[in-house]
Design a protein around this nucleic acid. Structure first.
Lengths: 273, 273
DNA sequence: CAAGGAATCTCATATCTTGAGAATCTTGAT
DNA sequence: ATCAAGATTCTCAAGATATGAGATTCCTTG
């Protein structure tokens, strides 16, 4: 049996399998029957069944009236405990909300994990095509404005470390495809103070992001505005960037990273060491 | 080694243990070291270590800079996938938000699972003492307004089944403590159309809830308003109940449970097959 | 710089998971 | 109704897999 195990030396077969089951159910947008689970994962009916029963007992999985399996609400519980540590999310929300009202476009709050950015929160404007992103999901750093915003303001060594981990997959024809190109882009980002993703993640989607710096002036997250390229035009970028900076400044104050009074030092200048 | 396994026949030791680890980390509000995890769970250092490494590989746990363990963001991802199925949450949110603006008190959206209610969403008013509830968490049916609201409108057999499962623990001196008392309370709830929790869950906290009925007029969720007893006074209950009904009506329409025009035809007749 | 505490790692052993297959339950077609 | 096809649940013997004692290494702190 081939295992889906990512690289890593420690192994507990049962766990890898269980998570494979959860993964599968998480990917599928419709509940799956035992047989489907078993065959998709190359598990024996019997084995898959046992796993599902145990997962169900833990409420990690639940059954629809017709007996199919889907993710259970225990995961929702765990998920909420997991972000609770990041009280960033709660504190940032009001600011994001205001930002969305102003810009009429979707706002995201993201953090960096390994070489991917994770969406901690998303606020959508009242009337707008729903974006496909799901809170909790992740994207590669190099093709998102948030990723670039964080990366650009990370200390050189840590940034290099992240870049090393990137697998430069091409998602659109504009996706940055080499470490060199990415480094150049980061330079540009630092100069203007905000990062742009110009249809590099998805055709027709343009995003702009600024980093949220903590008390040590290290980026802990990024806030972005995303929208269809025809609405988020190149001309509007500077003004949106401004609104983003304002928003981030508010969050910084709320988080206690900066005192509200002297909250105005340009983030750009601060980075020297 | 004693296992924490709930009742249930199927067993996979490794899974039960892994979830015990997650549970432990979820309960603790500070990250835990390997030794703490091992001793709390009566696992061998070595075993606990292996589990943590595997969980970390799957990003179910992550390590703080000083090497302690806490819940990982993968859980956040899974959690969000898990509620995605309940698009109820998204649809209800705007209505809840309006409700909160009107009442200036905290609103909850809950569903029933087994004999507990699970908090799908919580909206807090701008200025208010933060409530202790965590989205995703759960409480026993019998001591919450939401629980009683759903229970009261469930078909008799299903309600009975739920009641059978309740372990009548006393959380305050007012907590309903017997099936009979609960049945009486349900009768009362049906008569007036809304459920009340008068400091039965927590001293000083009063809540009021109404059920959200689907197209078959079966309760699928409940919406509540909670606040300190001195603000959510007995006199205000009817007027809050009214606002709740309004809110729930809006959600029903959004969910397509009722047509907005003739929102009041009893769909009772529809249930035959 | 040493000592104590914590985290990692190794490996032989037996425990726990595995999966073949039989039994049972559903579903849909006739 | 009745049957067949498909899906799910259950049992149990075999052996692969997780286990944990303990040795080793890595930090921390005095």
């Amino acid at each position: 049996m081939r295992d889906t195990t990512p690289q890593g030396t420690y192994k507990v077969q049962a766990l890898d399998r269980a998570f494979a089951v959860l993964d599968l159910l998480g990917e599928s947008d419709t509940p799956l029957g035992l047989a489907q689970v078993a065959s998709s994962l190359q598990l024996h009916k019997s084995t898959a069944h046992r796993f599902l029963m145990v997962l169900e007992r833990h409420r990690m999985v639940e059954r629809t009236p017709n007996g199919k399996f889907r993710l259970g609400l225990r995961l929702f519980d765990f998920g909420n405990r997991a972000i609770e540590q990041y009280d960033l999310r709660d504190r940032a929300q009001p600011h994001l909300r205001r930002l969305v009202t102003e810009t009429e476009e979707t706002a995201h709050l993201c953090i960096l994990e390994a070489a991917r950015v994770i969406y901690l929160d998303k606020i959508e404007p009242a009337r707008s095509v729903r974006m496909i992103t799901r809170i909790g999901a992740s994207n590669p750093v190099h093709c998102t404005s948030v990723g670039k915003a964080i990366l650009a303001f990370l200390p050189p060594e840590r940034a290099a470390e992240v870049v090393r981990r990137i697998r430069f997959e091409r998602l659109t024809h504009r996706t940055i495809a080499t470490p060199e190109a990415l480094r150049a882009e980061m330079e540009k980002t630092r100069r203007r103070g905000y990062a742009v993703d110009d249809e590099e993640l998805e055709e027709g989607l343009r995003c702009i992001a600024v980093p949220l710096l903590d008390a040590q002036r290290l980026p802990v997250a990024a806030v972005s505005i995303s929208g269809p390229s025809f609405r988020v035009t190149a001309q509007k970028l500077p003004s949106i960037a401004n609104q983003l900076l304002q928003c981030v400044r508010g969050i910084s104050v709320d988080m206690g990273y900066v005192s509200s009074s002297r909250a105005n030092r340009a983030a750009t200048a601060a980075w020297t060491a």
